Simulated scan of single mutants.
Amino acid sequence: MRFRHAPELRAAHPGLAAGVVAADGVGLEAVADRRGIDERFAADQHAALERLAVDGPGQQPEIQAWRRAFAAMGLKPTQYRCAAESLLRRLAKAGDLPRIHPLVDLCNAASAAAAIPVAVIDRDRVVGDLEVRYARGDEEYATFVGEIEHPAAGEVIFADDAGRAHARRWTHKQSGWSTVRPSTSRVLIVAEALHDGAGDDVSALVARLAGDIERFWPAAPHRAVLTSQRPELQVDDPATTTRAR
């Protein structure tokens, strides 16, 4: 499996920084330190609340960069929000984040603390390669209630070789098809940012997430930061051997 951003998308967004973590053996039954996960979740949620005490979700520079990108793509930033902004808005309103799955919880809390969108994708639900690209208009996207939608031509999606869209509107909405579930064992985690200093922030975020996985599961995750000079990651399945190129 290869993960990359299409060259034309990178050309349109030259400030894009993307970090990727590939891990196997992260199922529910394999969790080695649930207390540690709870503590890490609480610490990141607290950090996100401290961030919100200074500026609202829409005023975070990391979120503003995504709002500008969404507006440039013809999307209303107040109607379609990146995943990190949605989490921060939920946290500001409810005071806490939902608990879904230990790995998803860790990634959501880290996403909110950094104000950087993070997607967690079940690799076994992806056919062939996964590319962030402009939609043709014939791809299929499964909602969380099982309905099938077709992203409009030109919309930014995470697309696999079978024509399935695993996310719509770039970092706005992940597909219900490849979300993490109790049976999930192998994942691809993707963090993306566009703000000034995004490269350093994304690098730190994926290093942190890879370290958490290694600590809380008996797993040996691999990570890479992708740039225009190093645009893709090859994940050699079924073993968790990865190389960036």
Rank of each mutant, 00 (worst) to 15 (best):
A71R: 15
P61A: 10
P77D: 09
L103W: 03
A109Q: 03
L97G: 05
A72E: 15
A92L: 06
A69Q: 12
D122W: 01
C82T: 06
V104S: 12
N108A: 14
P61Q: 12
L97M: 09
V126H: 02
R99V: 11
G128K: 04
P117Q: 08
A92D: 09
D105A: 06
R68Y: 08
L52K: 13
P77G: 08
E85V: 05
K76S: 13
A94H: 10
E85Q: 12
L106H: 01
A119E: 01
C107N: 14
A84E: 01
Q60A: 13
M73Y: 11
H46Q: 15
P77H: 08
L97E: 05
I116R: 00
C82S: 11
P57C: 11
W66E: 10
L97C: 11
L87R: 10
A94G: 01
L97Q: 07
D122S: 10
I121G: 00
S86P: 00
D124S: 11
N108D: 14
A71M: 09
R90Q: 07
P98D: 13
Q59L: 12
A47W: 12
N108G: 03
D55P: 00
A92I: 04
I63W: 01
H46N: 15
P117D: 05
L88M: 09
R123H: 03
C107D: 02
A72W: 06
L87E: 00
V126D: 01
D105T: 05
K93W: 05
I116C: 02
